[in-house]
């Protein structure tokens, strides 16, 4: 690497993986015990890796965020781009504060 210098051992391992042509995405996670089963706020993943719900440790409501971000979930959410930019202002962490995502009465 020319522009990014790996400093500690984990960084050097990541770099080596790239040289070896391995996938580094898995290395960016907490290994070997992951932080959680669903690592991003995204719809469509309401089942866990085993096809059940037992390992879903997060409220599904956190998926709400994906709705206005990528706009591919057919639920109606406030338009944050133009009319309701503050809609999620009180929801700093979706995991904790999802109840504060309120309805909009235009």
């Amino acid at each position: 690497m020319k522009h990014v210098q790996a400093l500690n051992r984990k960084a050097r391992m990541t770099e080596q993986k790239i040289v070896d042509g391995d996938d580094v995405v898995a290395m960016q996670e907490q290994q070997p015990l992951p932080l959680s089963c669903t690592t991003v706020f995204d719809p469509g993943w309401e089942i866990d890796a085993l096809g059940g719900m037992g390992l879903l440790c997060q409220p599904m409501e956190r998926d709400l965020y994906a709705c206005y971000n990528e706009c591919w979930w057919p639920a109606q959410l406030p338009d944050q781009m133009v009319n309701y930019p503050d809609w999620s202002e009180k929801c700093a962490s979706a995991v904790k504060d999802w109840r504060r995502l309120d309805l909009i009465f235009p």
Partner: peptide
């Protein structure tokens, strides 16, 4: 959370 440390140019 990977805890890699990098220096950027």
């Amino acid at each position: 959370p990977s805890h890699s440390i990098f220096i950027l140019d």
